[in-house]
Structures are given as C-alpha cells and as structure tokens.
C-alpha cells in the first residue's frame, strides 16, 4: 500500500504507544505502517486485532490516517479470501436478515413483555429486506463473503 501520506511516517511510535490492543497483543501499528509501504502485509493476522478506536490516527504527529489504512489493508485481505470464521458468520446474518445481529425468540418475547412490538426495521417489513438483499447482490457482497 503506497500513499504519499504514509511515506511521511518517521517511526515515532506514538501510534503504538496509544494502542489499547497492542498493550495485550502482537499488534504493533508502527511496524504495520512501516511494512505497508514495502510489501503486501494483508495476510497479517494482527490487522484483525485492531478495535478501530482511532487513537493512533488522532495522535499521529504526521496526521497519517492510520486507522483508515488498517481498514484498507483489511479489505485487501478480504479480497484474497482471508476472512475469519466469526466475521463470515456476521456477513451471512446481514445477507439473510438485513441485520448483523438478528432478533431471536428470547428477545422477541422480551420485547413483547416490555410493551414493544416487532422492531420497525427490515425485521418487520419483508419488502424492505428484499431491497437490502438486492443491493448486497448488486455490490457483489454475497460473492465476496461466500
């Protein structure tokens, strides 16, 4: 990944020092920035340990969009089919139900009990769900996460 902005990184490490995930994991965002200009690192598992908290991006003295770069590296990984099983599952939920976290029987019952009907979302309107399915097909998302 090459962008003129990333080339201004002077490896100060502010990003890594601000990273809540790096405190506990092998995620070293300073190294990711450094390596991303030299080679394809979309296969690195560490990319998926980022919570997208934006600390690194906010604090970078060179104003490098560090978190956005991680998002971009992730989408390169996805294009190569590198998708974690849990994330694939969430994608399937979206394709099937229009929600990343769909309603279940337990929570339908709870809603009723506290005086709420079915949520006024695609869950209640099948035609609206069809629309979501159609656009997910149109953008090729269903093929992407197959």
């Amino acid at each position: 990944m090459k962008s003129s902005e990333i080339l201004t990184c002077f490896q100060c490490g502010t990003c890594t020092g601000s990273c809540p995930s790096g405190r506990y994991t092998s995620l070293n965002v300073r190294r990711i920035v450094k390596d991303s200009v030299k080679k394809d690192i979309s296969g690195e598992p560490d990319l998926w340990m980022c919570t997208t908290c934006y600390n690194c991006q906010e604090r970078c003295p060179r104003s490098i969009k560090v978190t956005d770069a991680i998002l971009q590296l992730r989408s390169e990984a996805v294009k190569k089919g590198r998708i974690l099983p849990a994330h694939r599952k969430v994608c399937r939920f979206l394709i099937k139900t229009g929600h990343a976290i769909p309603i279940d029987d337990v929570h339908s019952a709870i809603r009723k009990k506290i005086g709420l009907g079915a949520p006024e979302t695609v869950h209640k309107y099948p035609e609206a769900l069809k629309e979501v399915k159609k656009i997910l097909k149109s953008t090729g998302f269903d093929e992407l996460v197959k």
Binding site: T52, I70, S75, I83, H87, C91, T139, G140, F141, L144
Partner: peptide, 10 residues
C-alpha cells in the same frame, strides 16, 4: 467494524 473493513462500496 466488519462491513466497513470488508468492502467500502457495500
């Protein structure tokens, strides 16, 4: 978290 990192256009 997931969808934005997966495919920007979607």
């Amino acid at each position: 978290g997931v969808f934005r990192s997966f495919d920007k256009i979607t």
